[in-house]
Amino acid sequence: MRLLKSTIHPDISDMSARQFTRKATRAIVLKGENILLLYTKRYHDYSLPGGGIDDGESHVAGLVRELKEETGAHDVKDVQAFGLYEEFRPWHKADFEFMHMQSYCYICSIDDELLEPELESHEISNGMYPIWMNIHQAISHNEHTMANSQKKGLSIERETFLLKLIVSELLAS
């Protein structure tokens, strides 16, 4: 899979320090200029649906599971690789100094009807919910959050980069 971007958080100074790798999938589901996203009230941002790949799970199986859990999407088909976004970010728990986050992005289609999401408790408490959103409005919203919000999360830069790349590569005519 092609590497879309690799970033190192400015707080990481020693790349030989103890790290662990977290692999995740991200779904790109488009209907014209609308895209299926997750809005998270806590961070005031839009992100692609997806999440961690379980041990022994394929990327596509993880993608299908995460889409169902976070958005209620079903009948996932036409899955195509888009690219890998990797991040080296601080980790503030015992045993590791930083995390190597690998986000494998896939384009896919889903059934038009969304079923009830099966959000985890932390996703619910963060105010997360699925929404179809105009991709240009989502980018503008995230850019405003990055420029003006103290509560922005670490993922917003990745998500905004990916949304802009989706526009330039998948929506450009």
Results as ranks from 00 to 15, higher is better:
Met1Pro: 10
Leu4Thr: 07
Lys5Asp: 09
Lys5Cys: 06
Ser6Phe: 08
Thr7Trp: 07
Ile8Pro: 04
Ile8Val: 15
His9Asp: 15
His9Pro: 03
Pro10Asp: 06
Ser13Thr: 14
Asp14Lys: 04
Ser16Trp: 04
Gln19Trp: 11
Lys23Trp: 10
Thr25Pro: 13
Thr25Asp: 11
Ala27Asp: 11
Leu30Gly: 08
Leu30Phe: 10
Lys31Leu: 07
Glu33Ala: 12
Leu37Asp: 05
Arg42Trp: 03
Tyr46Asp: 00
Gly50His: 01
Gly52Trp: 00
Gly52Tyr: 00
Asp55Lys: 08
Gly56Arg: 04
Glu57Tyr: 04
His59Gln: 10
His59Cys: 05
Leu67Arg: 04
Leu67Cys: 11
Lys68Ser: 13
Thr71Tyr: 03
Gly72Cys: 03
Val76Leu: 06
Phe82Lys: 00
Gly83Asp: 01
Gly83Ile: 01
Gly83Cys: 01
Tyr85Glu: 01
Glu87Gln: 07
Glu87Asn: 01
Phe88Asn: 04
Arg89Asp: 01
Pro90Arg: 02
His92Val: 01
Lys93Cys: 00
Ala94Glu: 09
Asp95Thr: 07
Phe96Gln: 05
Phe98Leu: 10
Phe98Gly: 02
Met101Arg: 10
Tyr104Asp: 05
Tyr104Leu: 13
Tyr106Gly: 02
Tyr106Asn: 05
Asp111Leu: 06
Asp111Glu: 12
Asp112Trp: 02
Glu113His: 10
Glu118Phe: 13
Glu120Gly: 09
Glu120Trp: 13
His122Pro: 05
Glu123Ser: 07
Ser125Ile: 12
Asn126Val: 04
Met133Pro: 01
Ala138Ile: 09
Ile139Glu: 05
Ile139Tyr: 06
Ile139Trp: 06
Ile139Thr: 11
Asn142Ser: 11
Glu143Arg: 15
His144Asn: 14
Thr145Asn: 12
Met146Pro: 13
Asn148Arg: 14
Lys152Pro: 02
Ser155Cys: 15
Ile156Arg: 06
Ile156Tyr: 07
Ile156Ser: 06
Arg158Glu: 15
Phe161Lys: 13
Leu163His: 10
Ser173Asn: 10
